[in-house]
Nucleic acid binder design. Structure first.
Lengths: 193, 193
DNA sequence: TATGGGTTAGTGAATACTAACAAACACTGA
DNA sequence: TCAGTGTTTGTTAGTATTCACTAACCCATA
């Protein structure tokens, strides 16, 4: 878990919103300071440089997504477990739509080699967790076994990411919860033998 | 079809590569001119401003993806048709990996409201074409009908996009063709009743 | 009296873009 | 045949603006 002061968290949150609104090019020290209402140099009292702010963003993403994978009671039906996991993600996105611009657009950070590694880790970590869940579901007989868990995870993550990306691109102008529910119903039919 | 001079096409191609390598922040007039080997002001002999270059990139994307959707002989099995379409996409990505950084990362351009609209059009146009193909397949009995074509298109596009995005994030260090073939085999099992 | 968190004023570098000029070339009219 | 002319595509040298970041100072509070 990352430990940040209130001001640091505020800077990170505003940064996330800036990226969501204006893209990575909108993430400037001036924009951040203006959003918070302090001067530019004041930002440097809380972060050494801009790169550290981006690392802060990534670490928040890590915490955020990590929590939703605390797989909970593992004895429930796997499909229900998957639904709960994705629902938790969805709720978080609805509560903080700016997150969607970043969580599913890791490409934003890949220009800096310093940032490629943590992003790659985050991405494969999440997929591996999902693969583990699916594999357990296959053992338990909840999920079809004629496809590998890796392949199924690709389908689940991919379709969910695509839906959320569209939500962002469309300026959040459709009801994400409804669409996610529809997607989950579809995925259930696809995943259960 | 867009009509560009040789030099203009060269500028667009180098721009695509720059974005793939360094992200949107790496797309500067200086970088473009250096990549081509001419001076910065020479760029402005071929494009009025930077925005026009980005519009050029988008128009190339439109042509590129459009070609792969020329659905070909519509009388074949729909699954085979889908496979052909995705294969054509894949081949194009393998031939020009830089494209992947852009085609499936429309968020790159969304900072400028001028660019949001063409990107949105491109995206929904492609999905609508796929939906039409799937619907035809459902009528022909090639594809399961207990899920809507829209839902199935979400799964197909989403999983493919996710796979290609990972390929870019992983520095193209796995064999895309192999993975796409595996994905297509999986999708076939999922789509056929 | 030291520290944490703010300020104003400024740095050099990078940004998109412009002004003014020059060389290569095609096309004219005598 | 060939000077003259315009167009195309390049150049060098510059612009104003924005970028991340620093120096120096201030002031409330522990």
């Amino acid at each position: 878990m990352s430990e940040y002061t209130a001001r640091q968290n505020q800077i990170i949150q505003e940064s996330i919103q800036l990226i969501a609104q204006k893209g990575i090019q909108g993430l400037t020290i001036k924009n951040i300071s203006r959003a918070i209402g302090i001067s530019e140099p004041a930002i440097y009292r809380h972060f050494e440089n801009k790169n550290d702010i981006i690392l802060g963003i990534i670490s928040v993403l890590k915490d955020t997504t990590g929590e939703n994978f605390q797989s909970g009671s593992a004895d429930r039906n796997t499909i229900e477990l998957l639904k709960t996991m994705i629902h938790r993600h969805t709720e978080r996105f609805i509560a903080n739509p700016s997150l969607t611009a970043i969580v599913f657009a890791e490409e934003i950070f890949t220009n800096d080699s310093l940032l490629r590694e943590p992003i790659r880790n985050l991405m494969s970590m999440n997929q591996n967790k999902l693969i583990a869940v699916i594999e357990r579901g296959q053992s338990a007989g909840d999920i079809r076994t004629d496809l590998t868990a890796k392949q199924l995870s690709l389908v689940v993550i991919g379709s969910f990411r695509f839906l959320v990306s569209k939500w962002h691109l469309m300026d959040y102008n459709f009801d994400l919860k409804t669409e996610v529910d529809a997607l989950l119903a579809s995925l259930e039919k696809l995943l259960v033998e």
